[in-house]
Amino acid sequence: MTGLIGVVGGAVLDSLAEPGRLLVARRTAPPHFAGMWEFPGGKVEAGETAEQALHRELFEELGVSVRLGSELGSGSADGWPLNDRAAMRVWFAELVDGDPRPLQDHDELRWIDLRNRDEVLDLPWIPADLPIVEALLDRLSAAETTAAPAH
């Protein structure tokens, strides 16, 4: 244990098999993050696995159930650094039940087009989430290139 606070986030996609859109959430608090966009999720509680925490957080914050895909690796077992006290692990996820609503911590949800990199990057992201967004776009772009049929 590194002493870091474990946080989990969901890169909720319209489809794990053929992702085209990403669900993002706009923060209402704390004041310095209000109005900024992030991956929905939250802290891992004592006795939970990271995956259990992500399922719980997405249900509490958005009212949805998801199927988890692969983790978006950061190169560290702790995950993506958020600050000097916390790191976040992020999983790709797909809705299986529920209509996403901003129930806690957010005032707006939005589906954004992953094929429009500029639109995605132009959102005012929480600064710690921006490198994760860039890695997500790079990974999906690489997967699309690899999956493309040869001509």
Rank of each mutant, 00 (worst) to 15 (best):
T2S: 13
G3C: 09
G3R: 11
L4V: 06
I5R: 09
V7E: 09
G9V: 05
A11S: 09
L13D: 02
A17R: 14
G20S: 14
V24R: 01
A25R: 01
A25S: 14
R26K: 14
R27A: 10
T28Y: 05
P30M: 10
E38K: 11
F39C: 02
E45R: 14
A46T: 11
G47W: 07
E48P: 04
T49A: 09
E51T: 13
E51N: 06
A53D: 04
H55I: 09
E57V: 06
E57M: 12
L62D: 04
G63Q: 09
V64H: 01
L68D: 02
L68G: 03
G69C: 14
E71I: 11
G73D: 11
G73C: 11
S74W: 05
S76W: 11
A77Y: 08
D78A: 15
P81D: 02
L82P: 00
R85I: 12
R85K: 13
A87P: 05
A87Q: 07
R89F: 05
F92R: 04
L95A: 03
V96I: 15
V96A: 07
L103Q: 08
Q104R: 15
D107T: 06
E108R: 15
E108T: 11
I112D: 07
R117A: 10
D118M: 08
E119R: 12
V120N: 01
V120H: 03
L121N: 08
D122S: 13
D122N: 12
P127C: 03
P127I: 04
I132G: 00
V133P: 00
L136F: 02
L137P: 01
R139T: 13
S141F: 04
E144Q: 15
T146Y: 13
T146C: 15
T146G: 15
T146Q: 15
